[in-house]
């Protein structure tokens, strides 16, 4: 191909890039319009599917996202779960922090008076497969159900002796401890604001 003369400046040479940018931009805008709502719905669906189960409800519930100032001053998100008959079924709290390998995201369900934990669900984790990742499985998670929030939960490697102890996943002590620590911290931070909200608002 012969050398292109540089007359007409960059605009003449770059016309293809500009046209392409506009065409592709249009294509992307169309993609976003068509698929955007579905993607947003997907993101909500996982959390919303689990939230009623975490407060012990079987079917549909009214989930209201709320924002509260936690005990440490930060703004936190939580979910108010209202049963079909209008009564408050419980709260679901979001917790996230460092696990063994990477970040762990949790949903913790508590009773309306924040006295008992009603469930735990792991939204996202990147722990070691077959080891740390087992914290997301029912056997480990179910241990949290029914525990009181008065005392922090401790993780032991043998059979638990008190009601505030749970057993770690074999070979994944740090992942198990991280999850328990996250649960303890979020409950400690949100206990008072939630109780205040409940007594003040209702």
């Amino acid at each position: 191909m012969a050398d292109e003369p540089r007359q007409g400046g960059y605009l003449r040479q770059a016309w293809l890039v500009i046209v392409l940018a506009l065409v592709y931009g249009g294509a992307l805008a169309a993609t976003q319009t068509a698929l955007g709502p579905r993607v947003a719905a997907n993101r909500l669906r996982e959390a919303y599917r689990e939230i009623p189960k975490l407060v012990g409800l079987d079917g549909e519930a009214n989930i209201v996202p709320i924002e509260l100032t936690a005990a440490d001053g930060s703004q936190r998100q939580a979910y108010e779960v209202v049963a079909s008959d209008g009564t408050l079924a419980g709260w679901v709290l979001r917790a996230s922090g460092q696990g063994f390998q990477d970040r762990v995201e949790l949903l913790v369900g508590v009773t309306p008076d924040v006295s008992t934990i009603t469930g735990l669900y792991v939204l996202d984790q990147k722990e070691t497969p077959n080891l740390g990742s087992l914290v997301a499985e029912p056997p480990f998670r179910d241990q949290f159900r029914g525990l009181s929030t008065d005392q922090p939960i401790a993780v032991v490697t043998s059979t638990p002796t008190t009601t505030s102890q749970i057993r770690s996943v074999t070979g994944a002590t740090i992942s198990s401890t991280s999850v328990a620590e996250l649960v303890n911290r979020v409950i400690e931070d949100m206990k008072t604001p939630l109780r205040r909200l409940r007594s003040g608002g209702k």
Binding site: Q13, A14, L16, V17, L20, A21, Y24, A27, L28, T31, Q32, L35, G36, R38, V39, N42, R43, R45, E46
Partner: peptide
């Protein structure tokens, strides 16, 4: 300018593929 054109084209199709996967195979 051809590398620029290649990259622009590829990035557009990758965005479409990525959004498609997020929408239908979340």
């Amino acid at each position: 300018l051809r590398i620029l054109v290649f990259t622009l084209t590829i990035a557009t199709f990758v965005t479409i593929a990525d959004r498609f996967l997020e929408a239908y195979f979340y």
